[in-house]
Amino acid sequence: MKHWWWKFLAIALLLVASIAALRVPLSPALVHVSPSRIAPGEVTIEVTGYNTRFTDGMQAYLVNDSQYVCPVRVDVIDASHARIIAEVPAGMRASMTDLVVQGLTYPGAFFTEGLGEGIERGACGPRANKLDPSGLAFTFPNRSILYESIRNLHFHVPMWFTMIALMGLSVWHSIKGLGDGSLDRDRKAVSAVHVGLLFCGLGLVTGALWARATWGAFWTNDVKLNGAAVTALIYLAYLVLRGSVADAHKRARLAAIYNIFAFMLLVLFLFVVPRLNAIDSLHPGNGGNSGFNDLDLDNRLRVVFYPAVAGWVLLGLWLYDLRERTARLAEQLDR
């Protein structure tokens, strides 16, 4: 019991984090507005919400450069569909008009025609103490483009954390093994690489699906994707190198040297080179994309994300442990 308490911890963390990642609802948001262009005169606006609870008598208004346009009528069709009829005045200042329904904002909803020096400010601005219909519930942020796929954060990113942890462990054993020339260390290093490659594959698959959903393609020419490809190639090459040397001690030495050399260059490539041309990355936190830190109400994600990372890393170590022990048993059987 003393030695394997952490396996229970891994199971508990993974269960909690995965169930939360899949079950926590997204916060309500407006996801679609039509038409996309408004001109002075009467317009009929169709609004589609997600996880919203539209009710009769709910508040809705247009915002243009902090001037409000109040609707003539708001018809609620169902909990997530509404029709808003508004009389758009001529002479609004900004070319983009936002739509606010039930305290939810759809920024830049309409291209605006008939611009001018400004309009009279409507009397329907944000209410002082508006009641958020889901203010107390625990939800994930609902971001345009991402929507439900934001859940993948708790699967895709921990894969790479786990992979880096395992590759780091492998290099540690390689360095130690070069010092004392032990085959035990070599077995540990290669076991960690095997499990690390598994997580690399999972990271690539989850990433490709996520990229298809958000960027429109399974693979893009992105700094981090190049990094992932290079990582996969390096460790496949490591296995090829092992396969081409027959003598065990020589294999251990050559593989350890390549492992250390490749890992150091990989760290440089993954963490230094992207800083040189960060502008190109589509990933969050690069090139003006919002990252984890400035995601609004990011703490809701963090509460699930950190346990997920810890759980996956522990699972990776567990898999490594099993792999290493079976490899040792296989060697003893061969002898």
Binding site: V230, I234, S244, K250, L254, F261, L276
Partner: peptide, 30 residues
């Protein structure tokens, strides 16, 4: 260093390309 490893492994250009390409790629991109 890659050439030295490949020569040590007793395998010529083929192994060198496999081992070297992923390490040269970052430099090539930059």
């Amino acid at each position: 260093l890659i050439a030295a490893i490949a020569a040590r492994a007793g395998n010529g250009l083929g192994l060198m390309a496999i081992l070297g390409f992923p390490l040269v790629l970052p430099m090539l991109l930059a």
